[in-house]
């Protein structure tokens, strides 16, 4: 089992994607198939950008076993008021700054769901959000 841990700074678009990039490198070294790596890193990158776009700070914990990749992203921030609404394609509360970076079109969470086998979202308004994602490797 490999465990990777990253701290994410809210609002810092310069470093956004660094954690996902490191996870991609690790999965490549482990000879995971290109298709599965893409599923994992697209979901992780969308979720990482969500922390940068919406939260004050966050943490990413990734556990890689031969069977699956489990990713837990916990942030401290404004939280999600209505998770069902947030899962709707096209719904977004992103700021103009986030939209100017090419995100905030209301596609992130639906795209995450499409790329992983399990997605759970727990959120408390004013406190933060935890995303748990699992991608099976076999």
């Amino acid at each position: 089992m490999i465990n990777l841990k990253y701290t994410i700074e809210g609002g810092n678009f310069t470093n956004a994607g660094f954690a996902s990039s490191q996870v991609k490198k690790t999965l490549k070294q482990l000879n995971v198939s290109t298709k599965l790596i893409k599923n994992v890193v697209v979901a992780l990158y969308e979720a990482e950008v969500n922390i940068v776009a919406h939260a004050n700070k966050g943490e990413i914990d990734v556990s890689i076993s031969p069977e699956e990749v489990k990713m837990i992203l916990t942030d401290q921030g404004k939280g999600i008021k209505d998770i069902d609404q947030a899962m709707t394609v096209g719904y977004s509360t992103a700021s103009q700054k986030v939209r100017a970076m090419g995100f905030g079109a209301g596609m992130g969470l639906p795209n995450i769901k499409k790329n992983v086998d399990l997605l759970t979202i727990e959120s408390n308004v004013g406190i933060g959000t935890t995303l748990t994602m699992i991608k099976k490797l076999i």
Partner: peptide, 23 residues
């Protein structure tokens, strides 16, 4: 839109964009 790009599952693809930043 970078989220649009992330929905595409195609190899050997040219991305044509006016979005010029690190992301």
């Amino acid at each position: 839109l970078m989220s649009d790009v992330l929905t595409v599952d195609t190899d050997k693809m040219l991305l044509i964009t006016g979005m010029s930043n690190l992301q």
